[in-house]
């Protein structure tokens, strides 16, 4: 059992950046399983924050709470200045257009082609200034992930890495301010996993997005993280850059970095 205390901080002093997402004292349980307990986190504009933890530690639950797919039992989540739990259906839908979500399973619509997958969110968030540009936006998003040639293919015809890229393209089609990645490299071979990690970096630089990346793949963490938060037994156990956490002597932190 972990002590009730503030997370280990390995961070050195940096200039404060604008907060785009805050998780304050959030708790979430499923029956007797207390997944998140008084969990707090802050995401700053333009940074990649990796939430690192063992499988089943509640990482995916955390980002599903952030996007409003799961309600929290206690605490508060604020995204781009709006408290998620206090929003109505329409306001939440509006907020979700500014937050991309990449599912671990990719969740591509399997009865639609790649083109239709990308057009789906675009056509439902009609933007007057972009009317008639749908096709070029689809091509641009596919070009960003390097898969223009798959435009008329069905998801079943794509490899695991290609599906991941298409899912990312669908997330980028309406440029988000924040992207939530749920285990982006799970189930991929090391080479493809590295390519996806590099792509996450490219997306951050090109679209100036802020991201929360859920992972337990240390290579992905090393390549993508500006900052790492360690989730242990439902709490934020330690925070800092990859290198800073790597140098900590704490036995629980070392389990991840050895």
């Amino acid at each position: 059992m972990l002590p009730d205390s503030a997370p280990l901080s390995a961070a050195t002093a940096t200039s404060p950046a604008e907060e785009v997402l805050t998780v304050e004292h959030v708790s979430k349980s499923f029956g007797d399983n207390h997944v998140l307990q008084d969990f707090s986190l802050t995401l700053h504009r333009g940074e990649n924050l990796v939430v690192l933890g063992k499988s089943g530690s509640g990482k995916s639950v955390l980002i599903k709470c952030i996007i409003g797919l799961l309600p929290v039992d206690a605490g508060r989540i604020t995204v781009l200045g709006q408290e998620v739990g206090a929003l109505g259906h329409d306001e939440l839908d509006q907020l979700r257009t500014k937050v991309g979500f990449l599912f671990q399973s990719n969740a591509l619509y399997d009865s639609m082609t790649v083109r239709e997958n990308l057009l789906f969110p675009l056509r439902r968030h009609w933007m007057a200034d972009r009317r008639g540009q749908e096709e070029s936006m689809v091509m641009q998003a596919l070009d960003d992930v390097g898969l223009v040639e798959t435009i008329d293919k069905m998801p079943a015809e794509l490899s695991g890495g290609q599906r991941k890229r298409i899912a990312l393209a669908r997330t980028l089609i309406i440029p988000p301010e924040i992207i939530l990645y749920d285990e982006p490299t799970t189930g991929l071979d090391p080479i493809t996993a590295r390519e996806i990690s590099q792509l996450i970096r490219e997306v951050q630089q090109k679209y100036t997005t802020s991201s929360i990346i859920i992972s337990h793949d240390m290579n992905c963490v090393r390549l993508t993280a500006d900052r790492v938060a360690l989730l242990v037994e439902g709490r934020c156990y330690a925070e800092g850059t990859f290198q800073e956490l790597q140098q900590l002597d704490d036995p629980i932190v070392r389990e991840f970095f050895v």
């Binding site: 939440l92 979500f101 599912f103 399973s105 969740a107 399997d110 789906f120 969110p121 439902r124 968030h125």
Partner: peptide, 13 residues
């Protein structure tokens, strides 16, 4: 397969 969740998080009802 989380396709309905994907539609939901895209704000597409």
């Amino acid at each position: 397969t989380e396709q309905i969740d994907a539609m939901e998080v895209a704000g597409t009802n």
